[in-house]
Design a protein around this nucleic acid. Structure first.
Length: 478
RNA sequence: CGGGGCGUAGCGCAGCCCGGAAGCGCGCCUGCUUUGGGGGCAGGAUGUCGCAGGUUCAAAUCCUGCCGCCCCGACCA
C-alpha cells in the first residue's frame, strides 16, 4: 500500500523523477507566483551548509561581505551595451511605488555589477584603494521563460563576488582563483567532479571579456553549469567611470571581475547523485548525516529508546549531525524508505535484540551489507565512515562521468554522443556554426577545459580548422 | 512567446461525452492492535467543483469570456 510514496524511476522519466524527489523529500514546494519556489527547512538547511563552507572559502581568499540594494535605476543597466542587451528581456521592473508612478523605473537586480560599479566609482580614487575584494549574499530576479526549481527560478539565492584591480594580470588571476574555489566546493563538499574551463564567446556572460565555468554531468547525461567566474576587463569600469590615480600619476580604469554560485548548485547535487530511491546527499553538506531508527514494540519502547537517546548524544558529541527518528506513528520500514528518499548518508537501526547484544546496525545509503557495530565503538567510527562515504560518492560520480564523455571526430557520432552525454570535439569557433550545431542537435558548447591537452584538428561539423587548439566539450544542458 | 495538458477534499485523481443527492485512493483525527523494509480493524472530519457571465425548472457537467498552473520547445545561473 501507499505505493505512490515512491518516485518515478530515472530511466522512465528523469524530469518527473526530479520533480517527484524534490517535493517528496521536502526540499521545496512551488510558490504562488510562477517560477518561484519555497525552500522548505530541509532544503534550506542544505543551502545553509553549502553557504557556510563557501562563505568561509571566500573569506579565506581575502574577500569581505557587503550588501548592495535590491533596486537598481533602469538607466544603470543601460550603461553597458552588451549587459543591457543580455539582461533586458528578463528584467522585472518596478514602475509604481508609494501609490504613485515612479519618475524612473527601477529594475529588481538580475545581478549587481552596475550598482556596485556606481558605488565603487565614488569609493575608489587611488592605487592604494586597490584591490577591492567584495562578496554579497543576495537574492536576484530573472524573469526566465521556463523556470525549474533550483535550476532556473524567477527569484534565486546566490553569492556574487565583485573585485576591482589595478592591473589586467591581477584581475585575470582573481577570475581563475575563484573558479578554483568553486571547483573545490563541488569536488570536496558536493562530491561532484567538474571541468574547469572557458566559455565560448557565444556562451559568455553579457558584459564580460570572457567567462570561466565549472561544468558537471547529471545522471541523465546532460550538463549543468554550476558556477561561473567572469573577467570583465574594463567594460564596467568605463561604463561607470571607475578610475584611480596610479603610482605613475596616470588616471586609469580599474579591471574588474565577478563570480557567482547559486541555489542551482543544489540542483546539481540532486541530479549528480540521486537514484531511484531518491536523493543521495554528500555527507559534508547533508542536513542530517546519520539517522537513528529505533525499532520497538509498545512494551520495549523505553528499553530501546533510552540507549538510542544515549547513542544520539554521543554521536552528536563526536561532531556528527545526527537525528533520532522516534515518531511512534510510523513503522521502521516506513522510516527506512523515507530517510532513503531524503538522502541521509548513514542509517543506524537499533532494536531490542541489538540492545541485548550491545550493538547496533549500520547501513549506508550507497548500498552494501548491514554491519553490526558495538554501541561503544559506533560514535567514534562515524566521522571516518562519513569521509569514506564522501570518497565513494565522488568516485561513483567520476566513474559515471567517464562513461558519459567520448572523443568524437565525426558529426554522426557527435549527434549520437550528445544524446547520452558529453562529446569532446574540435570546433571552428564560428558562432554561426555553433548555433547550427545547437539547432541540429540541441547540444551547446559547455566548456573548453583548461586541462585538455593541446591538440589540432578540424571542426566536427564544418571541417574548418579548430579555433581553440584543443577539444571543446559539447552537451545538452539544463 | 509557440505547442500540448490540467484546474473537483491537504495530495493524486474519477465524475463531464449523455445536466437531476459531489465520489475514490492516499493522507489527516479518535480508539484498539501492530512495529527488524512503506502494517491491520473500526469509527470520524474535510469541498466557494479556478473565476465571471449565460442557457435551463435544475449546471462540476452545456455555451462564452477570463485567470492560473504544469509539461514540451526557443532564451537563460
Amino acid at each position: 500500500m501507499a505505493k505512490e510514496q515512491g518516485v518515478t524511476p530515472q530511466s522512465q522519466d528523469f524530469s518527473q523523477w526530479y520533480i517527484d524527489v524534490i517535493q517528496k523529500a521536502e526540499l521545496v514546494d512551488y510558490g504562488p507566483v510562477r517560477g518561484t519556489m519555497v525552500m522548505r527547512p530541509y532544503g534550506y538547511a542544505l543551502w545553509e551548509n553549502l553557504q557556510r563552507e563557501l562563505d568561509r572559502m571566500i573569506k579565506e581568499t581575502g574577500h569581505e561581505n557587503a550588501y548592495f540594494p535590491l533596486f537598481i535605476p533602469m538607466s544603470f543597466l543601460q550603461k553597458e551595451a552588451e549587459h543591457v542587451e543580455g539582461f533586458a528581456p528578463e528584467l522585472a521592473v518596478v514602475t509604481h511605488a508609494g501609490g504613485e508612478e515612479l519618475e524612473e523605473p527601477l529594475a529588481v537586480r538580475p545581478t549587481s555589477e552596475t550598482v556596485i560599479g556606481y558605488m565603487w566609482s565614488k569609493w575608489i580614487t587611488s592605487w592604494r584603494d586597490l584591490p577591492v575584494l567584495m562578496n554579497q549574499w543576495a537574492n536576484v530576479v530573472r524573469w526566465e521563460k521556463r523556470p525549474r526549481p533550483f535550476l532556473r527560478t524567477t527569484e534565486f539565492l546566490w553569492q556574487e563576488g565583485h573585485t576591482a584591480h589595478a592591473t589586467r594580470e591581477e584581475a585575470e588571476e582573481e577570475t581563475r582563483r575563484m573558479l578554483g574555489v568553486y571547483a573545490k566546493l563541488a569536488r570536496d563538499y558536493a562530491a561532484i567532479p567538474v571541468w574547469e574551463g572557458m566559455k565560448t564567446e557565444k556562451e559568455k556572460f553579457a558584459g564580460a571579456v570572457y567567462t570561466t565555468t565549472i561544468e558537471a554531468v547529471m545522471r541523465d547525461g546532460k550538463a549543468l553549469q554550476s558556477g561561473t567566474s567572469h573577467f570583465l576587463g574594463q567594460n564596467f569600469a568605463k561604463a561607470f567611470e571607475i578610475t584611480f590615480q596610479d603610482q605613475d600619476l596616470e588616471e586609469k580604469y580599474v579591471w574588474t571581475t565577478s563570480w557567482g554560485l547559486s541555489t542551482r548548485m543544489i540542483g546539481a547535487i540532486i541530479m549528480a547523485h540521486g537514484d531511484d530511491q531518491g536523493l543521495i546527499l554528500p555527507p559534508k553538506l547533508a542536513p542530517i548525516q546519520v539517522v537513528i531508527v529505533p525499532i520497538y514494540r509498545k512494551n520495549t519502547r523505553e528499553v530501546v529508546l533510552e540507549p538510542a537517546r544515549e547513542l544520539e548524544r554521543e554521536i552528536r558529541a563526536a561532531g556528527v549531525r545526527v537525528h533520532l527518528d522516534d515518531r511512534d506513528q510510523y513503522s521502521p520500514g516506513y522510516k527506512f524508505n523515507e530517510w532513503e528518499l531524503r538522502g541521509v548518508p548513514l542509517r543506524i537501526e537499533i532494536g531490542p535484540r541489538d540492545v541485548e547484544a550491545g550493538h547496533a546496525v549500520l547501513k549506508s545509503r550507497l548500498g552494501g551489507e548491514k554491519e553490526f557495530i558495538g554501541l561503544r565503538d559506533l560514535p567514534g567510527l562515524l566521522p571516518e565512515r562519513l569521509e569514506g562515504f564522501h570518497r565513494a560518492l565522488y568516485e561513483r560520480a567520476l566513474a559515471f562521468r567517464e562513461e558519459h564523455v567520448e572523443k568524437v571526430d565525426d558529426y554522426d557520432a557527435f549527434k549520437e554522443q550528445v544524446e547520452r552525454g558529453f562529446a569532446a570535439a574540435f570546433h571552428c569557433g564560428d558562432a554561426a556554426c555553433e548555433k547550427a550545431i545547437q539547432e541540429e542537435t540541441k547540444a551547446t558548447t559547455r566548456v573548453i577545459p583548461f586541462d585538455f591537452p593541446e591538440e589540432e584538428g578540424v571542426c566536427v561539423r564544418c571541417g574548418k580548422p579548430s579555433a581553440y587548439g584543443k577539444r571543446v566539450l559539447f552537451a545538452k544542458a539544463y
